[in-house]
Design a protein around this nucleic acid. Sequence first.
DNA 1: CACTGATTTCACGAATTCGTGAATCTTCTG
DNA 2: CAGAAGATTCACGAATTCGTGAAATCAGTG
Lengths: 167, 167
Amino acid sequence: MATNRTDQAAADQEELRDYIERFANVLTDTGFPRMPARVFVALLTSDTGRLTAAELASLLQISPAAVSGAVRYLSTVHLVGRERDPGSRRDRYRVFDDVWRDALLQRDSMLSRWETSLTEGIHMLGPDSPAASRLGESLHFFSFVRRELPLLLERYYREREGMTPQQ
Amino acid sequence: MATNRTDQAAADQEELRDYIERFANVLTDTGFPRMPARVFVALLTSDTGRLTAAELASLLQISPAAVSGAVRYLSTVHLVGRERDPGSRRDRYRVFDDVWRDALLQRDSMLSRWETSLTEGIHMLGPDSPAASRLGESLHFFSFVRRELPLLLERYYREREGMTPQQ
DNA sequence: CACTGATTTCACGAATTCGTGAATCTTCTG
DNA sequence: CAGAAGATTCACGAATTCGTGAAATCAGTG
């Protein structure tokens, strides 16, 4: 029995689906909500990086409502964007090329909230208590990271640019 | 009516409790489980950085079981350690001085799992598909971060050392 | 401006998480 | 080695999260 084209395509999709689940599981282990993780990986592993809601729903075997929810989440954390082909009713969702940069920079806002809390704590505890000095250490560390992170990213993109000048 | 010492202490504790809740909320907003967050902040803001289970329970108004659970969580993510004064039945839980370094390095293991998944995906998709090249970009980025992070930390500790040589 | 295809919203049910109280287990003291 | 103080485990109930189906809303098209 020969493996025809249809069989092959089916096998490929089967394998892709399995992979998506595995990768998504790794992400959920790190606190990522389940559906968003699956949708995100589906987009990452699609050739164009752009899929419609219907394609996502059928690939992942989920309801349109689930797609909607996942995409809303992913949008708010800037991991995917919404596009609409002009003169069409279908949205297309896409992963940004620099997803990870955005994801990292997002951490930044988190850091700044932490810094706010730490500063507040230091004032409350009085500047010369041992606890305050512990909080101060943390604050110092965070502001260091927050200062250095953008520089690190910049360096990465500069290096990468150098390696693929044709991009 | 004069403010006596007891009143002042009570007011301080009240304020501390409020602060702990606020800071813990900030942490939970970033995916941190609630109880662990509260216990962690309580330890951070204690003068010695070390509290017994009973002290935590009374400060946070939670059951011993909740303390136990929170502490177990915090231990597994290396944010607090357990100590026992020799010749005592009481455990003391403490925040490590370099909590944040550990926390960051922990991210490292997360990154390496992601890298594994990405590599797997690249193989599955065939190395010259567009999707594979997208995954490849991500892989490249992560290995960069994983390489640079320890260097960044090292630099921080070296700089800090220079600023507080008496430590 | 009615029609149709597509997305979002909402209420519900299922599943999971979370904290407690009670019981069990551990470890020091006499 | 019995007793007591402390910590942990476990089952339960409460609260939250999650995904679905159905209804409502939105946006192009003729």
